[in-house]
C-alpha cells in the first residue's frame, strides 16, 4: 500500500470487519469493491481477512459437548453428584 496511489486503503481498513461480516451498507460495499478492483494489496487483505474469519468459524465445528469425566468432576465439586444422570441428548 504505497502512500501516493492508495489514499483509500486506510479508510477501507476501518470498514473491513463490517464488510466481511456483511454488516456494511450497500453504498460503502460498492466503494470497497470499486477500490479493491483497482488495488491488488487491498484485494488480498480483504480476501485473506474473510478467509481468516471463515477458517475460525470452520474450525469451531463440531461443537463438542463436555467430556464425561469433566462433567463428573464438576458435579462432584458442586455437590451435585446426586444429579449425575446421563445427559439426555
Amino acid at each position: 500500500m504505497t502512500e501516493s496511489t492508495h489514499s483509500n486503503c486506510k479508510s477501507l481498513l476501518g470498514s473491513l470487519s463490517d464488510y466481511v461480516d456483511g454488516d456494511l451498507g450497500a453504498e460503502l460495499c460498492r466503494e470497497i469493491e470499486k477500490h479493491i478492483a483497482e488495488c491488488e494489496d487491498c484485494r488480498i487483505v480483504v480476501d485473506t481477512t474473510r478467509k481468516t474469519v471463515d477458517l475460525v468459524h470452520a474450525s469451531n465445528l463440531p461443537q463438542t459437548g463436555l467430556p464425561d469425566e469433566v462433567r463428573d468432576r464438576l458435579f462432584k465439586r458442586l455437590n451435585l453428584a446426586d444429579y449425575l444422570k446421563p445427559v439426555s441428548q
Partner: peptide
C-alpha cells in the same frame, strides 16, 4: 486500527 496496518500481502486465500 491504524496501528495494525497490514504488512503481509501473500495471496493465500
Amino acid at each position: 486500527a491504524e496501528d495494525f496496518s497490514p504488512t503481509q500481502f501473500v495471496d493465500w486465500g
